[in-house]
Simulated assay, not measured.
Amino acid sequence: MLNDMRYRIQFQKKKQTGRLPVDGKDSWETVIECWAKAEGLKGREYYAAAAIQKEKTIKFTIRHREDINEHMRIVFENKVYEIESILPNYSRRHFLMVKANVVS
C-alpha cells in the first residue's frame, strides 16, 4: 500500500483575513501536506456518482490522521477538491479513505 502513495496532496483550511465574518475576504492556508494514493471511482461507485453528476470524484488513501475534517479542501495537481467524506479503511486500519469532488 505504501508503494502506491506517490502523490503529494495538501489539506487546506479556511483562514479569515477580515475582521468581520461578512467581509468575504477568506483565504485558504495549507495545514497538512502528505503522501496519498489517488484513484478514480470504478464500477458501481462510478455509475452511482454519474447518476448525480459527480463523475469527477477521486478517492485519496492516506495514513490515518485525526486532524482532518470535511470543512477542509484538498489541492492535488493544481486542482482544488472539496471533501465529500472521510472514511476509515477497515481492511487496513492505519489508513483513511477521503472522497473528494473537483471544484469548478
Rank of each mutant, 00 (worst) to 15 (best):
M1P: 15
L2M: 13
L2I: 06
D4C: 14
M5Q: 10
Y7C: 14
R8H: 07
Q10Y: 00
F11C: 01
K14G: 04
K15V: 14
P21N: 12
V22D: 10
D23R: 08
G24N: 08
W28D: 11
T30N: 11
I32W: 00
I32P: 02
A36R: 06
G40Y: 10
G40V: 05
L41A: 09
K42S: 15
K42P: 14
G43R: 02
Y46A: 06
Y46T: 06
Y47G: 01
A48K: 15
A49N: 09
A50V: 09
A50N: 13
E55Y: 07
E55F: 02
K56I: 09
T57E: 03
I58V: 14
K59H: 09
F60P: 03
T61R: 01
T61F: 04
T61P: 05
I62Q: 02
I62C: 03
H64E: 03
R65H: 04
E66M: 01
R73G: 03
I74W: 03
V75E: 12
V75P: 00
F76E: 06
F76W: 10
N78T: 13
K79T: 11
K79L: 13
V80W: 10
E82Y: 01
I83L: 01
E84K: 03
E84R: 00
S85A: 11
S85R: 08
I86L: 03
I86A: 01
N89Q: 12
S91L: 14
R92H: 10
R93Y: 13
H94Y: 09
F95N: 11
V102K: 15
S104P: 14
